[in-house]
Write a protein that binds this DNA or RNA. Structure first.
Lengths: 352, 352
DNA sequence: CTGAAAGCGCTAACAA
DNA sequence: TTGTTAGCGCTTTCAG
């Protein structure tokens, strides 16, 4: 018997791109690929001992499961497609983190696409994501999205849940916030403080959250017999820059406001800045309320009074909804509207 | 001849999950799948006319390319794996957005994994991403990552570029900032203003940026003959919360500081808050400088003096590096250190 | 408990 | 210019 012995498994790690396949492992152990496949997935069909040997060799050889191959066979990828418009907006970053946390726990990975409120880009990005055959998608549709623009995805049978924003008429699952309720709370607060001339910054009818919030603002005004002054309404997407522009514009109105409700926290931050450019200060001689309660809101100076939207729960819930939908494609439509909570901080005060 | 005519292509859209394959299109047109495949990829090998017919029918039938199948065959997925520790940190969100912008332009999609500075989770997440056989990966390794913990990925031959942080000893491509240079600028500024007792908040030797910045801080002190007071150094990850804790701790030192350099903007924001809890104000009776120049930094009040790190360029460059590496696996190591710029705003002033 | 064989949808030789 | 064929790596009957 020579020094090398009876050729013990000599697991040669692959050179270059991982070349270890089930076949290679199978050959090594003189079993079939079926056995290896089953063993690696811990099937009780294969003997305890065999399972052990397979796993051990696989480990030694540095085997890495090829999900493309598995996906082709099983029609499942374990991919969750996520389409957002901008992850640089902390609101969406928080939502994305929540989704990631929830899906990772179920062994799903996130394939991300962004489209910056651009409908054409959304179309391209979403189609591209679909080509990876995600098990499902979580979407926050770009402003101006129509049911028609998403229909082909829906028709293709991809499970979809809409998050935060929704385009109606598709019968899709949805999780979002009760935007109307949130803004109404804010209006009560401001009006209770004595404000009569209240601006709305970054109104936007092209997204559901924008519509809901803006309409609630009008509703709140009307409910208290206050008139709606178009000069106090600034239409734009809710960005830091637009908040800044918006506040300046409404401050220049013939009858300027004493308070402003902002579409989201970002525009509220911009508004606070704009106020300072005019020598004014939120919480002292003007009132600002934001929406979302993004992490930085609590740290601002003064800290922002805003509407807490529970993005952690929203994101996690959307993942749960999606997983359920994937398991049961024909289940009835799921809808969840989280109730937002106004959190009072330092940017609101009675009018001067 | 019956009313239906000679069976014109009657593209029946699929019921349920997209079932249109090359085969189905091929049958429809009585050509081979090879022709359809070529046609859809606009190959000059197939006649203009045929190409047109194929594309038209594909469109009508709602064909969607199956990338798993293509990947299996070609060994390319067009997926870029991205591993970050926390996308809720705007610095990383900005980096991610830049990567997304750059890769999307090349038809690549991003498969995202996060691990919250947890080494075990990083291991799991990265291995999971690898199973999708991304064409390459962009990683910002978790604190404490060792070369060994990433070696198997490298050995598997996955093209990798490290972004922002680097673990040495792997010979990987890297794009980051010249952290030392940035902090040294900040030290000059502070010392020039007259500060002699300068704190460092959120020092962290377990990540390269932390080491570089912290060591540059010590270097700056020493270069000016100033002593290093351990009571002025707070060790922690750079979060909003830790910035707040850190400032309080150094303020309680026997000989408290008059200024602080923070590991990043988040901790600087926390420090500004902590200062206010003590009735102090950055830019008035204390100086704070951050690092990164995240979007919100310019909007804070006072606006944060910080080190601009060009995360847009960093992210975009990392994508470029990766694409080049994918095209040429054996090319020499690529390294880029962007030179940060100190941007003076409102949080620094001479000591009282 | 294990193996043989077929096939998921695509692309790449090679032939015609 | 187009078709034939084989096969990427995996899972899943179905036999044994």
């Amino acid at each position: 018997m020579n020094a090398d012995g009876p050729s013990p498994p000599s697991p040669t790690p692959p050179a270059g791109r991982s070349r270890v396949t089930l076949q290679i492992i199978a050959d090594h152990l003189s079993v079939s690929t079926a056995t290896v496949s089953l063993a690696l997935r811990d099937s009780p069909l294969v003997a305890e001992a065999t399972r052990g040997r397979v796993r051990e060799i696989a480990r030694q050889m540095g085997y890495s499961y090829n999900r493309s191959a598995a996906a082709l066979r099983t029609d499942r990828t374990n991919i969750i497609g996520v389409g957002f418009h901008d992850i640089t907006n902390p609101y969406f970053a928080e939502l994305l983190a929540a989704i990631d946390g929830a899906t990772a726990a179920y062994g799903r990975s996130i394939l991300l696409g962004t489209y910056a409120e651009d409908l054409e880009r959304q179309e391209r990005v979403l189609n591209s994501l679909a080509e990876y055959r995600p098990d499902g998608m979580i979407l926050c549709p770009a402003g101006g999205s129509t049911a028609d623009s998403l229909r082909h995805l829906v028709d293709a049978g991809v499970p979809i849940v809409q998050l935060s924003r929704e385009v109606p008429g598709l019968g899709l699952d949805f999780v979002g916030a009760d935007d109307r309720h949130g803004i109404l709370q804010a209006m009560e607060h401001l009006i209770g403080l004595g404000h009569r001339r209240i601006a709305f910054l970054c109104a936007n009818e092209s997204i559901s959250t924008g519509r809901n919030r803006y309409h609630a603002y009008r509703e709140g005004l009307t409910a208290h017999g206050l008139s709606i002054d178009p000069a106090l309404i600034y239409f734009a997407y809710g960005t830091r820059e637009n908040g800044l522009k918006g506040i300046q514009q409404v401050l220049d109105a013939p009858a300027p406001p004493t308070a402003a409700i902002c579409m989201n926290d970002l525009s509220a931050f911009g508004a606070m800045l704009g106020l300072r450019h005019r020598g004014r200060e939120a919480g002292v001689d003007f009132s600002i309320v934001g929406c979302d309660d993004v992490k930085e809101a609590a740290q601002w100076f003064p800290a922002l009074t805003t509407i807490h939207n529970f993005q952690n729960q929203m994101g996690a819930k959307s993942a749960e909804f999606l997983l359920r939908r994937i398991a049961e494609p024909a289940a009835p439509q799921q809808r969840l509207l989280l109730t937002p909570e106004l959190v009072l901080r330092g940017t609101t005060c009675p009018p001067r």
